[in-house]
Amino acid sequence: MNIFRFLGDISHLSAIIILLLKIWKSRSCAGISGKSQLLFAIVFTTRYLDLFTNFISFYNTSMKVVYVASSYATVWMIYSKFKATYDGNHDTFRVEFLIVPTAILSFLVNHDFTPLEILWTFSIYLESVAILPQLFMVSKTGEAETITSHYLFALGIYRTLYLFNWIWRYQFEEFFDLIAIVAGLVQTVLYCDFFYLYITKVLKGKKLSLPA
């Protein structure tokens, strides 16, 4: 494992923990898209089915278990525990526009036409766009809490770091997975606008707000 991959995983884990703590400590999921979190739960579930079929390392298994468990905990907090604070009126992105095309694409473009492989491919495609309901919510309300911005930055930079990891692996291990690379590029591009706002506003101590 190279440094980019490791930092990417740490950043991904930080994002998940930041979100869990934000909701738990404030007893509120205001400003958080339940739809994006639901999509991430689907992403982890469909990708990590290989927990039952394939052992890679203790690190790999424990991270997968933590990702899956925390995604379900987040969904539970939004749709059950702190349901009253969930701002469903602003969470109006139509997720079928993400799920249906990525599902179709995973049947058409995959490494292997087997159930587990198609589900893995679907999870890669879906992950690349799963943040859209959250970004849509931020653009709709025109603002995001600073802690939510930190969450989004950690989540966005994780896939960006994976891009460097893939360059590294291509160079030194002669390994590349085109499906993951293209989806990772799409995912990173979706965050570019947010990265700009994060650097120019949040890092300078201002709240993330969009011009009206």
Partner: peptide
């Protein structure tokens, strides 16, 4: 170099 699908990443 060939594309592989080992899925050893997260």
């Amino acid at each position: 170099v060939v594309a592989r699908s080992e899925h050893d990443e997260l």
